[in-house]
Design a protein around this nucleic acid. Structure first.
Lengths: 216, 216
DNA sequence: TCACGGTGTTAACTAGGAGAGAACATCTGC
DNA sequence: GCAGATGTTCTCTCCTAGTTAACACCGTGA
C-alpha cells in the first residue's frame, strides 16, 4: 500500500481546480506565499496541520478526502455569454444600507430591487437596522448564474436559502446540489460557491446572508 | 470561533484512552518517541501531517474527528424522519443543537420538527453550525398563537419572516399587522411580540431568528 | 510591438518547531 | 526493596515549513 500522503498534493490541486480558484488566491486567503501552495500541490513540501486544516476548510471539503487517492472528475466548466453590467460590492450584506427602524414590514409589490449580472435580482425583504444582515428574495432567470465568468465566490459569514419556485444548481466547494421548491440550505459563505439556473423557468428563493463580524 | 487545532491534543488523548492503548504503545506503533506523543496530547507540540494521518489510522478514526471540539463521535446527523419533541426552551434559537456541518441541505419531507403549544410547529431548514442562528419554517394552524395565554414574548436578537401561505396576525409592540403570502418582516425581537392565525387555513412562513452574537 | 497584469514553477535561504533523549515522578505487583 | 509499567518535562538538534526572490508562460490592450 502506498502512502496516502503522496496523494495529498495532487488531490489538493484537483479540488482547487474544481472550485476555479487560482493558486495565488488560495495563498492570499490562507495568508501563505503562492510558491508554498505550489510546492504543496507538487509534493515538494508538506503543510502543517494548521494549514492543512484551513486549506480543507477553504475548499469546503472534510480533511479526509484530501487523503483519498482519487475523486471523480466532474466537468462543470463555464460558459460565458453576453455582457451586462452589474451591481458590484464586495459583500452581499452590503447591498443595502442599514436602516434605523426596529420594525420593518414589506409587501411584495413594494420592494427595493437590485439588479445584478445577467438576470439576477435581489429584492429586499426587510430594512433591518442590523448592519451585518441581509434578508432578501433572490431571482435567477433561466441561464442566469452568480458569476458570468463561472468562478466561485466566497466571503465572510453564513448564508441560508429557501427555494420558493423553479430550480437552482448550487455549487459549494466540490458539492453540487439541485435546489427545488421547498428545499433549503445553510452554509458557511467562506466556502467558495456559485448558483446557476439551468432550468427553463425562473428561480425564486428567500435568502438570508449575514456576516460574523470577523475581520481579516 | 476558537481554533479547532487547539482541540487536537485533548481529542487524541480522549480517543486513545477510549481504545485503552497506552501512550507508549502508540509511540511504539508510530515509531516516534513517547515523549513526543505526550507533547502532542498536551498541545505542547503538533504532529506533521504524516504522523497525524497514521495516528488517526492507528486509532481507527477519520482525521476529521480529531478536529471536533468534544466527545460523542456519533456520525448520524439526525437524518431520520420527523422526530417530534415538545419544545420548551427560553430562546427560539436554542431550539436545535448546533451541528458541526458547514454545509447543510434539507429537503421538505426530511425536516426535523418541533411541536409547540396549540398547533404551532417549527421545522428546521438548515442544521447550521452557528450557535446563534435558527432557520426554520413555522406553521400556525387556524386558531393557533404564539402564546395561548395571550401574552407577548420577547428575547434577544432579531427575527425575520417571509409568508409562504395563509394569513398571520403579527403584533409587535403596539403595531399590529396582517401577513399574507409574499409579505415579509424583520424586527428587533426584544420588542414584545406575538403571532396569531385568525384565518381558516394554516399559515406557513420561512422564519429566521438570530441572536446578537452573544456566546453561551 | 512592448508593457502589464494575470497564471504556475523553482531555487536558495532561514527561523522555528517536530521530534529525540534523557531524567523525572508516579503507580502497580512481586 | 526492585523491576516494570505509566505519563511528564526538561534541553537540544536537525529538519522542514514557509519565505523571498526570480523564473517562464500566457492573455489583453494600447
Amino acid at each position: 500500500m502506498k502512502d496516502p500522503i503522496e496523494y495529498l498534493g495532487p488531490r489538493l490541486k484537483e479540488i482547487r481546480l474544481k472550485t476555479g480558484l487560482s493558486l495565488r488566491e488560495i495563498a492570499r486567503q490562507l495568508d501563505v506565499s503562492p510558491s508554498f501552495v505550489s510546492q504543496i500541490e507538487n509534493g515538494k513540501s508538506q503543510p502543517s496541520v494548521a494549514t492543512l486544516y484551513s486549506l480543507a476548510k477553504l475548499l469546503g471539503v472534510p480533511v479526509d478526502v484530501l487523503f483519498e487517492a482519487h475523486g471523480e472528475v466532474v466537468p462543470a466548466p463555464t460558459k460565458s455569454s453576453a455582457e451586462v453590467e452589474r451591481g458590484n460590492f464586495e459583500h452581499p450584506m452590503d447591498a443595502w444600507d442599514s436602516s434605523r427602524a426596529r420594525i420593518s414590514a414589506v409587501n411584495p409589490n413594494n420592494r427595493s430591487v437590485i439588479t445584478m449580472d445577467s438576470g439576477v435580482t435581489w429584492e429586499r425583504l426587510a430594512a433591518t437596522s442590523e448592519g451585518s444582515v441581509n434578508f432578501m428574495e433572490i431571482n435567477y432567470e433561466p441561464g442566469a448564474e452568480t458569476n458570468k465568468t463561472g468562478e466561485l465566490i466566497f466571503h465572510d459569514g453564513f448564508e441560508y436559502g429557501y427555494a420558493l419556485d423553479g430550480e437552482l444548481e448550487v455549487t459549494i466547494g466540490d458539492l453540487v446540489l439541485q435546489l427545488s421548491k421547498g428545499h433549503s440550505i445553510g452554509f458557511d459563505s467562506s466556502i467558495p460557491h456559485r448558483f446557476r439556473n439551468l432550468g427553463k423557468s425562473p428561480f425564486k428563493g428567500v435568502w438570508f446572508v449575514h456576516g460574523c463580524g470577523i475581520e481579516h
